[in-house]
Design a binder for these strands. Structure first.
Lengths: 367, 367
DNA sequence: ATTAGCACTTCAATCATGAGAGTGCTAAAG
DNA sequence: CTTTAGCACTCTCATGATTGAAGTGCTAAT
């Protein structure tokens, strides 16, 4: 049942109520709708429609004499409508822009956004070699523009290939591994090694790994190395054995990275004027590990995804919405960026921003 | 004038009022003081004393019929008293522990803290080679134990000496510089180099730098290199010239690091139940650059320092207090850790924690 | 010098009141 | 049969008055 059954004017009303609520942040009444939107019906008619919508579960009332507030289901309808109308324009609706903006101004805004996007893409390209810097920039931009919390997961290592690995002897039993990946990212790690290994030994090991395995993904290499261990258990030559040990250490980066930004920005939202609600958000993102697992699940889907309130599998997010998108290298999604905000979110803005910036990132990884 | 003039019982009263306020978070009245502390005076006498203290500027009243609240000057007196009594014990006062704790319990707590400290020191030692991890751990521990915001500045590069530098050719005009310091810290950076340089060239440059300059501080090397440029302007050999260019790039790390943690924890404090106050804190630490400069000024002083409210040079911190300490390598202070909280802070706890953890860090850098 | 006692001030909580907003329902109009 | 005007009803929110509690300052007595 439900939204397929709704007739045109009911759909219009629902959309209007959600849109109004997102902008006003106050329950919207029938009179407000009739005044603001000229549907050609009186407030009494709208009242009846709204009563129906409440019955269907799209709207609810904080108390009997207040206006209506969207439920998660109501937001879902609204977001789906936005997608039906087509993502890609920041000017769909739901922004605070008044209807009396001249078309000329719309175009000016559009032009501005295009330019911003170009600049931002260029900026990212300049940071291509420094993932940290790049995603720091991404999350900062996203959160300060949207006032929501932004999260980014840098490219998954399972898709990165080894470009080159080197080892440098430090002192006694310490050595540093330096890893170059196809994305131009550098990682390093301090290793504990047999103290009898000289720099020459390390060089030979590195040479071996580079010649045999460069070009493969990091996981592939791990698999192949493991296979070797089993196959040649009794007869590994010393070099391979050492290489395996060292490689294992070098690849076990402690926990994946995740970038989060915007706790400050989110304090400006009226939705979080109550500190207990702010704590809710803070609690949700505090557990980075959980957040990481959560966003990783979104890696499979394509395009922008919106999860509203209780749609989130995580209980802690039941009062929050997430707008997420993958970014890709070629056709393969390699990471996720997302915005987290109240269920009462400026969805069209958020969707537009996440979509745009994800595309900027993808462009950086392309070629 | 002022505190030197105060007689014993006035001092006692002031101390009692501050201590009580820190625990109650409510203005404290004369009756409360007489009940809680058995000075042997009636509330009327205390009232008179408190009126004097207000006149001297140590206390103030929110409104005429409320109890007294310490001013910054009052806190200053209190903190100085704590230092006079001697830092080092976590049990001085000002904690919520009731007076009727048996001595046995005190000892149990003391024993627990000693053990915690030993464990923590061991933990840090295990992270010696990973500054990031180490200071991440430090700030997290500090903030979650204190519920205040913790900040740490990792060892200043001006005191680190070059242990070894290496360059690895990446592709075209890119190369990676890997830097090992005396503290066992590794930094890397992507460089733009003349695309005609081969890996062999880079090796020669690295070899040159290592043989000539390892053991010097990073700043010293910079100075010496600059001198060379001037002296031998017309006759540098190609190697030195290239080395200088590359070294310059490699050393210009974008912005110093700073570790901040505890925005979540601080939300649990009643002092920040009002979101506008929380914003104040957030604003103060948002500008990491400013915070960095601020804490760097504290590098000169030794031991634990406390800055209360308006004592802070920064206007944004006028309602906050900072408890900071340097940590050292040998005798030389190389970095700072600090706690930021409301002026109504559990100073003795904060001081004890900062002191203890700073010592743990110092121990890690000694050898 | 200290203290008991009292008048005074202020805040915070409670309650009643009325205006305002919005609804649901009914009966009339199209 | 659909739409609308009208009205009674409900609930919230801001306002103002009242009251009790907490705490002070001052004075007079010890």
């Amino acid at each position: 049942m439900a939204e397929d059954v709704l007739d045109e004017r009911t759909r219009q009303t629902l959309f209007a109520v959600v849109e109004s609520y997102i902008n006003k942040l106050e329950p919207v009444g029938s009179r407000f709708v009739t005044k603001r939107y000229s549907f050609g019906f009186s407030s009494a008619t709208i009242r009846n429609i709204m009563a129906d919508l409440e019955e269907y579960g799209f709207l609810s009332q904080p108390h009997i004499s207040a206006g209506r507030v969207p439920t998660d289901k109501g937001y879902r309808f609204y977001v789906d409508s936005i997608f039906d109308k087509g993502v890609g324009s920041p000017l769909i609706s739901d922004s605070d822009t008044d209807k009396d903006l001249s078309v000329g101004q719309d175009e000016a805004i559009f032009e501005f956004l295009c330019q911003f996007t170009r600049n931002f893409a260029r900026k990212l390209r300049g940071m291509k070699n420094d993932t940290n810097k790049m995603f720091f920039e991404v999350t900062n931009t996203l959160s300060s523009m949207s006032n929501y919390i932004s999260i980014a997961i840098p490219p998954k290592t399972e898709h990165t290939t080894l470009n080159r690995i080197d080892f440098i002897k430090h002192k006694e039993d310490k050595a540093v591994a330096i890893l170059l990946t196809n994305e131009g990212i550098v990682k390093n790690k301090m290793l504990k090694v047999d103290s009898r290994l000289t720099q020459e030994d390390l060089n030979r090991i590195a040479e071996y790994l580079n010649s045999e395995y460069s070009g493969y993904t990091i996981d592939e290499i791990k698999r192949v190395l493991f296979k070797r261990i089993k196959q040649e258990k009794m007869m590994w030559d010393d070099l391979i054995s050492k290489a395996i040990k060292i490689y294992e250490q070098a690849m076990s980066f402690a926990g994946e990275d995740i970038f989060i930004s915007g706790i400050y920005d989110v304090m400006n939202l009226p939705d979080f004027s109550d500190i207990s609600k702010l704590k809710e958000v803070a609690g949700a993102i505090k557990d980075k590990h959980l957040m990481l697992r959560f966003l990783n699940e979104l890696l499979n889907a394509k395009g922008v995804q919106v999860l509203i309130g209780r749609e989130n599998s995580d209980r802690q997010l039941k009062n929050l919405s997430i707008v997420a998108s993958t970014y890709k290298e070629g056709d393969r999604p390699i990471g996720v960026i997302a915005l987290i905000g109240p269920t009462r979110m400026h969805y069209s803005k958020a969707i537009y921003m996440v979509d745009t910036i994800a595309k900027c990132i993808s462009k950086t990884f392309e070629q």
